[in-house]
Nucleic acid binder design. Structure first.
Length: 381
RNA sequence: GGGGAGGUGGCAGAGUGGUCAAUCGCAGCAGGCUGUAAACCUGCCGCCCUAGCGGCUACGGAGGUUCGAACCCUCCCCUCCCCA
């Protein structure tokens, strides 16, 4: 059994920016791509029907969350995550490595894996690299991530080095398990993983030499794609950009590069400029639910009193349903009144803005006008 | 007419001699959020300002007691409840 269902093709380049497409068992994804986050099998505040209508070609799911609830075996019995949630396009699952960071006070980490106290009921669970692979195989995502340790910023060089080296060892174990699973004929619990790809994750904090060491070690293992993890955790944006730039230079040209957990609209443009092909981030969805909207003219906090009688659209340059249909005054009213529709309309807009930005980025690369686009985007009128 | 309860910052509601510009909540104002424990979190919220253990005005009104009153006393105004 091979992983031949996954392939990546570069179709254009403009400077370091790349335009491409990857194929999965559930269809293709145009890159650079933004992947809405659907941690628990739902993009919060949205119907997946509408996420698809916005042009999202792939969404995220999370190993840790889906393992705890409703359980990966339950999902496998339903035919896998796609069938379970009613999403026919590609899905990428994160490994739970981010929860090693975000739930730090509820977990203990050792060589074998990460031990969590469930945030739901306190029960103890051991997430090992092998287990993370098995769970994602049962979920049947198109792209599975290796289990890594996402470290907090700042951290000392020694802490980052030993953590990064452990992430490499974990990546090796993940790959071995992945290949072992694919070497066996599909069984009822793993048939969902046919054609699944696995991405390695580069760590190394803000230390360029450690990033380099991690890149080399991770690419030596060999994955279908490579992610850059452990960034956008509080370090200055310029530092992140330079680390992204140095890291992508060491990654294989012909394989997708995924910057995990990033970022602001500006981050997307800046990191595409440095060779990134894939992004995911909770900012558009979370901030939407909290009243902050991303627009062509900057961020809008719809709670602000100055919008109470603003009859204009949220973003005059946006064609999404929210902007075509409703005024800022109405959106503010809905939000202040705590109406669910406020969250949905806001999320719809923010995702639309992100996905539209990616579309424009792709077009700009294809037309070799990416640098012009970038200058205009970062200097909004 | 008789009896009872009460009037505190936008609302609601603590406080009942000093550490009270006054708990908590709501509403309001502003900020934050980057592989989602997040429809969440933080700050401000009498007025003024050089924003401070700063100045001023304050707990229905007017007096009074006291070194000191939102808290005690007197009178007045007002509200609510019960019985006639």
């Amino acid at each position: 059994m091979t992983t031949s269902a996954f392939s990546f093709t570069l179709t254009a380049a403009d400077g370091a920016a790349r335009r491409g497409r990857f194929e999965t068992p559930h269809g293709s994804v145009e890159t650079p791509a933004f992947m809405p986050v659907g941690t628990q099998g739902s993009v919060k505040g949205m119907l997946l029907r509408d996420v698809e209508a916005l042009g999202a070609e792939i969404v995220l799911g999370n190993t840790y969350h889906l393992f705890l609830r409703p359980g990966d075996e339950l999902i496998a019995r339903r035919g896998g995550l796609h069938r379970f949630i009613g999403w026919t396009r590609p899905i990428l699952t994160d490994s739970g490595g981010f929860q090693v960071f975000s739930l730090a006070e509820r977990r203990r980490i050792h060589e074998e894996g990460a031990e969590f106290h469930s945030h739901l009921d306190g029960t103890r669970h051991l997430l090992t690299p092998e287990r993370a692979v098995d769970i994602q195989a049962r979920l049947g995502s198109d792209v599975a991530m290796v289990l890594d340790e996402c470290l907090a910023y700042p951290a000392t060089r020694d802490e980052v080095a030993s953590s990064m080296q452990r992430s490499v060892r974990w990546a090796r174990r993940c790959r071995e398990r992945f290949e072992a699973l694919h070497a066996q004929p599909p069984n009822p619990l793993t048939r969902t993983n046919v054609g699944q790809a696995q991405f390695g994750i580069v760590q190394g904090g803000v230390f360029a030499d450690l990033r380099k060491e991690s890149s080399d070690a991770t690419t030596a293992i060999g994955f279908e794609g490579y992610a850059i993890g452990g960034l956008s955790v509080g370090e200055p944006a310029e530092l992140m950009y330079s680390l992204v730039e140095e890291t992508t230079r060491r990654l294989p040209e012909g394989q997708p590069r995924y910057l995990m957990g990033t970022g602001t609209p500006e981050d997307l443009v800046e990191c595409v400029a440095r060779g990134i092909d894939m992004f995911d981030c909770v900012l558009p969805t979370r901030n939407a639910r909290n009243g902050q909207l991303f627009t062509s003219r900057g961020r809008v906090n719809i709670r602000n009193a100055k919008y109470a009688e603003d009859d204009g659209p949220l973003d005059p340059a946006c064609q999404c349903y929210t902007c075509r249909t409703h005024s800022r005054a109405y959106l503010r009213h809905l939000f202040m009144a705590g109406e669910m529709a406020a969250r949905t309309l806001n999320t719809l807009h923010n995702l639309s803005f992100y996905l539209d930005t990616m579309r424009r980025i792709r077009d700009a690369i294809a037309f070799r006008s990416f640098e012009t686009f970038r200058q205009e985007f970062l200097r909004p009128s």
